[in-house]
Every structure is written in structure tokens, then in C-alpha cells.
Design a protein around this nucleic acid. Sequence first.
RNA 1: UGGGGUGUAGCCAAGCGGUAAGGCAACAGACUUUGACUCUGUCAUCUCACUGGUUCGAUCCCAGUCACCCCAGCCA
Length: 546
Amino acid sequence: MEEINNFIKTIMEKDLEEGRVKTIITRFPPEPNAYLHIGHARAVINDFELAKAFGGYTNLRFDDTNPVNEGAEYVQAIINDIKWLGYEPKNIFFGSDYFEETYNRAILLIKKGLAYVDDLNADEITAYRGTLTEPGKDSPCRNRSVEENLKLFQEMRDGKYGNGEKTLRAKIDMASPNINMRDPVMYRILHVPHHRQGNKWCIYPMYDFAHPLQDAIEGVTHSLCSLEFDNHRPLYDWFVEKCEMPHVPHQYEWGRLNITNTVMSKRYLRQLVDGGYVDGYDDPRMPTLVGLKRKGLTPEAIRNFILYTGLSRINSTTNADTLDNFLREELKLKATRPMAVLNPLKVVIDNYPEGQIEYCDASNNMENEELGHRQIAFGKYLYIEREDFIEEKPNRKWKRLSVGDEVRLMHAYFIRCNSVVKDENGNIVEIHCTYDPETKSGSGFDARKPNGTIHYVEATTALPATFNLYEPLVFDETEETKGQSFIERLNPNSLIKLEGFVEASLKDTQPLDHFQFIRTGYYCTDKLSTKEHLIFNRTCPLKSSF
RNA sequence: UGGGGUGUAGCCAAGCGGUAAGGCAACAGACUUUGACUCUGUCAUCUCACUGGUUCGAUCCCAGUCACCCCAGCCA
């Protein structure tokens, strides 16, 4: 558990010490038009942890100022995701609940001569705005009288105009080097029903106008957002000041989180789902929180990952294996360690009685001792991992089974391989071994050392299982694929299914139980599992490959 | 070419005038009922993008240069 420590915390500390604020209040302000992903987790976790660190609190506020694409289904999904991460918002607010107040503040600005209704259409506004290097020019409507602006704005609200016919603009400076200050649009006409307001409004405030007011209304002290809003801060402060908001919030920016081999763009994620390339937003290959959850990540691992990788004003790209590391760390003492064979090879123990099964005590070092103890079956017919057997030992470093060699079966006996049965194509079908009854696990036998230790399952009691190995959805960015669409460049083989077996003790496994199958990685049971056939998703690979 | 932001190891990231924390990754070794885990060690000194300057002393202050990111939605 890492203590939060970053530059924002330093700012907060100072604000508290120097008496600028009494209570730290932050907010997490998603637009309800998408599922939260690991990038959002950085914002959620920092918003909540920073406020918590100072005994303050955090609100969840849906930034629902644009009814297009926004919907109630996302609202619940986002609430669920935040709770899953382990946070409880002090309040759940909606930006749209402040539409009346936002409207009144706009009128105040009009009365102060700081806002005007513009007749220019979208293209004209763009043209008048100028460019990065040339100043813009004033709209012909810029000097309308207060009375006329008031009347026109009322008419906009009353629905007298169609979409795009008029806008309300802040009167700031068309020559500002900061383009955001060149008379930004405050309200646009949108004859679109709102997910909470229904048809009550046909004018909707823009983010730049609504957001600072929302923060001010809620008493937010530190409004944290990503770096691309840095350019908007002067505008944020302008609106708070000119609208005469009694509480003055401040905006601070940090760099977004990127992870290698992880696609986070909203647009791309939508393409993957809509195109049927993945199961849905909770497909384990998706970087969404629901996807990561189904893949088997834990909220604690995500939280530690976010806190430990820190925060700065750099747009960083963190290696994906750093996330894996925090998951391993988290699961190390919590995941049970049963045995599973992903790619089975049949083994016959020639000197073991037909029909007999015995049980061996297996124990793992775990936080929960009970979970670490179980009985596992041993008998005449077993499965081992295909990759754990090779006919001829390639070199002295080979620590698994080969003909003439002896290995320990984990928690059970030494076995020696005597012969191999092949089909007409030369593929190995089964191998024949003998076991040494002297060598049972726990007996203290140490007269000789095995070549190595491998895992197995007893064939007649094992449960069939499917193992889903999800590879990241990476896109191919070679020369040949340049110019192709995102989907065309997508690696198509991102799901490998293996049909194998797990030991019988897993029969009562619940969805999202975590397991570390020895040498094959970390898995969690999928929500689709049944008692007869378990499905496991791989959460992260084991640290090293073999 | 206007404005803003940022440059510390392969990747994150502390340090903010007193001589470069930490994590991940990597490598070497020990241990091991799996090669995992654990443990030990190594990993920025013509060093903090570069070049000058101030200073007894600079990653930190100043000047200039370079590189990368953001801004010309009636998106957020």
C-alpha cells in the first residue's frame, strides 16, 4: 500500500498550510458517453486519494452538457466502476442539474456586456477566429446592445431558432494569442432531448463555460484535469471571475497515462465492440475497467499501479509489465495455487495398480492457510504438460522429463520415463513411466535428487477446462500497413484457447476466483464457467518465460 | 512561423543551490517439492536535452538553442 505523493499533493499541502482552503474538495467529472478505462482510473484514484489524504472528499459529477451520445446506461456503469475501484463519492451530481443557474450566469454576463448572441454559422465562426499565427476579427454581432442580446438569448432558449442558427459567445479578445480566448462559444442550440432533462432545453452550455461554474457551485477547491486543458485555464478563471462566483475553484493539470500495447482511444474501443472484434466492453482484451476486471485484475493492483507509477506533467507511456508486476504482487499471497495442465500429454504409471487413487497433501504458502491446504489425487493415469516432456534431453539445463530421466511430480512421487507411444505420424500419444513409492512428497526422501519438478493432474478425477490466453490488442505499425485503418492493422490472433484439465479441487470455483497455476501464469475463472467445464482467463504471465 | 506545456537511466519517477531516492525492466549469484516466490549483488560521476553565464558550489537560478506534446469543435 503506497502513500500518495505527487506535485498536486504538494500544492494542496501549501494551500492548507497557508490558509487558502479549509477542506480539500475534488471531483471526478466523466461525460456519461463511454465506459471507464485504465486511463480514467488514474484520474479517479488520484482525485479520491488526494482528497482523502487531507481528510477532504470527492464528488462524482457527470459532465452531461452535450446530450448527443450521452445516456443513462453509462451513468450506472461509471458508478459501478468507481465503486469497484473501492471509492464512494460523497455526492453524485449532474452538471445538467445546474442548467438553470448556468443560464442565469450567462444572463449576468450579457448584462455586463461580456457576452453576445452571434448569428455567424459554424464555418463563419471558424473563419473569423483567425489562425495560430494571425489574429481573428470581430463578429458583426459583437456590439449588439444588452437589450437585444437579452431578447435574442431568451428566444434561443424558447426554441425560436434551429440548430446552429445562433450561439452565445463570451466577449473577450479576438486577437488573443490563446485561441480559446477568442470569443469562445458559451451556448449552442441543440434540439436534442437530454437523458435527464428531457425536452426542457434546446440550448446547452459548452464545457468551457459549464465546467468552471459547476466546480464553483460545488465548492471544489482543486479541479484536476489532463494536460490538454492547460490552454483553457485562463478561460476557466475568466468565467469564474466574471460570473461573480462566490467560491473560486482552481484548475490543475497532469499528464495522461498511456500503457504500451494498449489502445485507449474511445473511438477505437467503440470500433472493436461495434465491429464484433471483441465480446463487448467487458472483453478481457479491452482496457476498460470492466474488461480488466473480467480478465482478472484486482482493484488493489490497479490502485497500487496508479499510485506507484506516480503523476507528473509529462504524458507518459508506462510499460504494460509494470501493471502485471502489481497484479503479481497483489495475488502472490492471495491466489490459490492448484495444478492445471493446459496442453495435456497422457502418462501411464506402469507399476501403479489399476483403479487405485491415493491422495497427497499439498500446501502452499498463503495468507489464508486454509486455502493453501488441499488433497490432490494420484493414480495410474495422469496428464502432464506437453512442454514438460521431450524425448531426448537437449542439454544439462533441461529440468523436466525425458526418456530415462527422473523428475518429481509436484506434491507426489518421482517418476522415471521408460518409453514413448507414437501415432503413425510420429506424434507422441502417451508416455510410460514407473514411480518410486519411496519418494512420496513429505516423506523426507533425499537419497537422490530428481532432474526437476513438474506439475500434473490425475486423469480420471481431473476437470476439463478451457484456458483463454488473451494477448493485447496491438496494432501492426510496419511500413506495409501504413495507411491502413486501425481495424485492418489489428493483430487478429489475440485469443488463444487451450483445452486442458485442472485438479478436482476446483469444482466449486466461483467466477473471478484467482489462481496461480504453477509455471503457467495467473488466471481467474470467467463468468461463463459452469461446474462441469471451467473457463479461465489469463490475468498476467508469470515473470519469466522458459 | 503565434501561444502554452514538457525534457532526470530501456519505462515510470523523487530531488527544486550543497555534490543524483525509489519502483518496473534487465543482468549475475544463492535458495527452491518447478526455472515461480524469496534473498544477495550490479545497473546515471567526462551525470540530470544541449550551450553558455551567475556562484566557493548548479539537475535546481539566468540567457540562448534543440526536441517532443497541446491549441484554430456550435466535443469534452
